[in-house]
Structure formats: structure tokens, C-alpha cells
Nucleic acid binder design. Sequence first.
DNA 1: GCCAACGTTGGC
DNA 2: GCCAACGTTGGC
Length: 154
Amino acid sequence: MRHWLMKSEPNDFSIDNLAAMPNGTDHWDGVRNYQARNLMRDEMRVGDPVFFYHSNCEQPGIVGLMEVCREAYPDFTAFDPTAKHHDRKSRPENPSWLMVDVRYLRHLRRIITLEELKPYAAGPLADFLLLRKGNRLSVLPVTPEQWGFILALE
DNA sequence: GCCAACGTTGGC
DNA sequence: GCCAACGTTGGC
């Protein structure tokens, strides 16, 4: 089992939006980065735990927990000319982009902010991809040690 | 709104 | 294959 962190802009899709879905479940569409796509395709499995991270907002940070509940399948929003992340090069018979389904588990009792995590880049979170300068991956692996350390901050 | 750090595109 | 131009991400 692998652990993950997935980013979403709360103005676009927040953890509250996910929690409000039927069964707390939704597809995670809009990933348009090959490295992130390959991670979803090759590494993500049903039952993997995921941090829900709010990015590009007033208080960037980890806000809750979810789990993968369906493995990678074509991101149909890429086929839709009216969709925000439409990609005309992606065809249904040969999809460029994939997504997984995720299920809401719970909010953290408080937001574990990026600001709070940053100092640990000098210690327990030295290799945490989220804290790497210039990192823009929206789907990234978290080691069991990193996962445990971060959750213990809650 | 600014801008650093990317990733992608396309001319050559 | 190189690399400049461009677009995007995301913190601040």
C-alpha cells in the first residue's frame, strides 16, 4: 500500500465539496501532467490513503484524508470542449489523461499548513516532495514515515 | 498581482 | 536534439 498527497484549489474543488458528494466519492479529474498521470496509472491502488491538500489559496495545507476507491481510467473531461481542462489531442479511443476515484474519509481536526510543515524539511520531512523547491506535482507519493509523522502533528 | 520554477511546444 | 518562447502552478 502506498500513501499519497493530492492537491486541489479549494476555489475549484475543496474537501467540503468532496464530503458533500454521494458516498463522499468523486472522480479526480483535471490532472494534466505526465508524471502525475503515470503515478496514478502505475502505482495507485484501491485502498491507498491520500492526504487532501488545498493549494493556491489563503492557507495552503493538508485538510483531510481520503482513499482511492477506483483505479485509473480515462479522464472523460479531457474530451469535452466546454470543460476547463479540455485537451483536443486526447481521444476516447486513445485517451491522453487518466483519473482515479477517491472517497472522503474525514477532515483533519485542524489544517496542517504548509507553513507548519516547512521547518521539518530540515529533519523528518527532508525528502518530502511537497517541500521541494519549485515542486508542482499535483499527485505525489508520501512515505509511510512521512505519513505517520504528519498525522502525529494533528 | 507578482514572479520563480517548472513543463510543453515548435522552429531550426 | 537544442533551446527560446510561452503557459501553468502555486506560494507569497
